[in-house]
Nucleic acid binder design. Structure first.
Lengths: 326, 326
DNA sequence: TTGAAAGCGCTAACAT
DNA sequence: ATGTTAGCGCTTTCAA
């Protein structure tokens, strides 16, 4: 491997000068800079970032820890983070814990190899923050010293308003992981909505915990059917996809027999059939906000991402009933 | 930050002993190991992987460079890579170049911060390999010293056989990026099929280059319609989704008016409507194979992933025609 | 079984 | 404008 010493020797200068020249420091003569640059490139020199980082205390990269890259929710956030990082000339390392791997050790390595990390919807923030120690960190959709969150309560409000206006009165919530902040927020907001609309005859039945995957949605179909609800709010898009598929196998058609509203609004929502009515966020913007918050340590930036309900095909007025249900 | 020196001093041993004890070297007394371990944990010591890597010449992580994390093709490969790496106690850093960012500098950093990299379907392997230099590297779906590829030719064969058996004779290929190995392979195989089935009256019209995204598929709709083909083979799933959507806007329904077969077979294929008939690969297995190849440097492992055609809803016999076409 | 010491390749004072 | 020097925190010979 060619090191800075090789370049220095060949160019007839000291390593310090090479380092300065390559860093475009103003404290080198133009002629020297050019000579060093040409020697470096002709030797095929590429700085050892490990050594530079060890010495300088900065790696020039940030980390993003997610629990499931195959969920478009996280993949899109990752792209937003990458966009923002690029503008600051920082690299991004994405690590997928796949909801199971030894998250602690993955995170430990990530923290030490970067200048700061973003935790996307972590299950156990306490443990994660302990591992992170004093390194800069931002959490997405969780409580934390520096957090960027989606406006879940408003999302729930919009979803319920939409369903109630369609005529639904018996609504099920297909809940996600018990340790999820997002799930807790959805339940909280649901309780508020349920109370304030009790006079209108609204009844909310909460279900779960179910895995935040298509399988989780499939597993919930029986429970959903048993509630006799005319509409379902799901933890996320991908769960909705699984639920709708499993319901169809049971002879229940969405939205004819039951309406479905999902959370997240990933690019999946308009792609599936029926296209999902979804309470979603601009996930790229969410990723960018988290990255900017981490990088600039800007305490004033807005840290609540608005949620917009996109009405598509998975919701419709409830089917007229003889007099069944509760 | 607590260093190995702090632990050594507190435990009353040398830093060398701490290093050995924490690495579970057999050359330390059991009692010493225990004392060191307890001191380390009580001090909240966490090794600086940068320093360790600089000295040892190994980082304990591998890198994966992809061009678009929001494409399930890459996200799923990333999960396969992570699975395999975990078994070898290696971390995985995923970097998304988003088809545009300065891939060279992203890759340079990734290479230096890991023990080896996997390039997933890179556009410009030559340039990438130049950046990588002598570091271990494996490429997916490209030519390279160490490559793991999908059996594209067989996929094309199966797709064409399926369409011909349905009765299609005029088939369009919606091509991907010109610099893509996968696109070139598809065209090659298509030429072979076209020649060998010429006697049956098969006619293949190739289109493109189009972007490997939903937008690319949408942009291709007009060109596809102009070919008067009764069936289309698309570069990948996501392009098919865009194409189908744009065709519908033009009053062309899949599969009634035109059949569509896609490549990749990502989890998207069965989710969209119509569900895509797709020539796909086990992408997790592909990722695992690439990682294992990188890690074990096993030259004998199978490096061609088989392709299976899954027939779903997007293909059907051609609609009977008065005598138009050609 | 343990310790002393020499760096890994780089950057940043501090000199000149 | 350039060079000298002292490490960043760790692993690993080499000795004891």
């Amino acid at each position: 491997m060619v090191t800075i010493h090789d370049v220095a020797r060949t160019a007839g200068v000291s390593t310090a000068t090479v380092s300065r020249a390559l860093a475009n420091s103003p404290r080198v003569a133009e002629a020297t800079r050019e000579r060093v640059a040409s020697v470096a490139s002709s030797l095929g020199y590429s700085p050892n970032v490990l050594a530079a980082a060890l010495r300088a205390g900065r790696t020039g990269a940030i980390g993003l820890l997610v629990s499931d890259l195959s969920n478009p929710f996280f993949a899109t956030i990752a792209q937003g983070v990458s966009e923002a990082a690029e503008q600051h000339e920082l690299g991004v390392f994405v690590v997928d814990s796949r909801e199971k791997a030894d998250e602690g050790s993955l995170l430990r390595r990530l923290v030490r190899q970067t200048d700061g990390v973003i935790l996307a919807a972590p299950r156990d923030v306490e443990a994660d923050l302990r591992v992170i120690g004093s390194a800069p960190a931002v959490v997405i959709n969780q409580e934390g010293p520096r957090a960027v969150v989606t406006d879940v309560a408003d999302g729930v409000r919009q979803a319920m308003k939409h369903l109630v206006e369609l005529g639904h009165r018996r609504i099920a919530y297909l809940g996600g992981p018990a340790s999820s902040w997002g799930d807790a927020k959805r339940r909280e907001a649901l309780a508020v909505e349920s109370a304030s609309r009790a006079a209108d005859g609204l009844r909310v039945i909460t279900l779960g915990a179910f895995a935040p995957s298509a399988e989780g949605g499939e597993a919930a179909a029986e429970a959903v059917e048993a509630t006799a609800a005319t509409a379902v709010l799901t933890y996320n898009d991908i769960v909705a996809v699984g639920l709708i598929r499993a319901l169809r196998l049971r002879g229940i058609v969405v939205p004819d027999d039951v309406s479905v509203v999902s959370f997240d609004g990933t690019f999946l929502a308009p792609l599936v059939t029926p296209a999902l009515t979804s309470a979603g966020t601009d996930l790229r913007a969410l990723g960018r906000a988290a990255a900017n918050h981490l990088i600039t340590a800007d305490e004033r930036a807005s840290h609540v991402q608005p949620v917009t309900l996109k009405v598509r095909e998975s919701t419709a007025p409830p089917r007229p009933r003889s007099s069944a249900g509760a």
